[in-house]
């Protein structure tokens, strides 16, 4: 299918969910270059779908600046959500932040729980996971229950990296400033390093078997077909 056809199908799907079915939709974005096409498509849908940035408190300042840049370029509001647990209560027994000893728990506090709060308020969570990103995502479906009654919608699940970058080029979308410095995948600063090997996501939690922050493993009903 041609890329533009895929886009029109996504917009039609979003409209069906929001207008025909009256569902409350929200989207999250990691605000990396490759996640901007979905934000752009949502903006093109002209639906009132709030887009959230998970501000863990550990993001690169460049990412937060990029959020403002995208917001302005696309004429949309990108909201921030954060953990309600203050940072001084996010330290382990040694007094260090959890990302130094228990990154899963750090991600739980700063990413999973704030997103779970959003799932309480909305019916459909639109997010930009792609099957080609890792093994976990390869097994995901376009629609999957998120638990507690909400639905996950992964509109770009079957997009290839090339399709994403073609879209970025075609629509002249802004690029994350750290791309030019050799970061192929950008998350929280403490858990990101410049691209290594062939796999851009090896740039996250480098050296660990951890490849997911929990958003796409915890907030999902495992038994779904």
């Amino acid at each position: 299918m041609k890329s533009e056809d895929k886009v029109l199908r996504i917009i039609a799907e979003l409209r069906r969910l929001a207008r025909d079915e009256g569902k409350r939709l929200f989207a999250t974005s990691s605000l990396q270059t490759h996640s901007i096409p979905l934000v752009h498509i949502i903006a093109r849908s002209e639906l009132d779908i709030p887009i959230y940035c998970l501000n863990t408190g550990f993001l690169f300042p460049e990412t937060l600046a990029f959020k403002d840049e995208v917001s302005e370029a696309l004429g949309i509001e990108i909201r921030s959500i954060s953990s309600s647990v203050p940072k001084h209560l996010q330290r382990d027994a040694k007094g260090n932040f959890y990302f130094t000893s228990n990154p899963d728990y750090c991600c739980r506090l700063n990413k999973v729980e704030p997103t779970a709060m959003l799932l309480e308020k909305y019916d459909v969570w639109v997010n930009g996971v792609r099957a080609d990103q890792n093994l976990n995502r390869r097994n995901m479906k376009t629609f999957q229950p998120a638990g507690n009654g909400a639905l996950r919608y992964h509109p770009v699940l079957d997009w290839s990296s090339k399709e994403i970058f073609d879209y970025i080029k075609a629509h002249k979308l802004p690029r994350h400033p750290l791309d030019a410095q050799g970061y192929a995948s950008v998350g929280c600063e403490p858990c990101t390093r410049k691209s290594v090997l062939e796999d851009p996501r090896a740039a996250r939690w480098f050296g660990m078997s951890k490849t997911e922050c929990g958003l796409h493993t915890d907030l999902i009903e495992k038994e779904s077909k």
Partner: peptide, 17 residues
């Protein structure tokens, strides 16, 4: 390194937020 980072880097990030 981590203690300097906690307060001077991330503490400033919290303030700026």
């Amino acid at each position: 390194a981590h203690l300097f980072d906690q307060v001077n880097n991330w503490g400033t990030a919290e303030l700026c937020r």
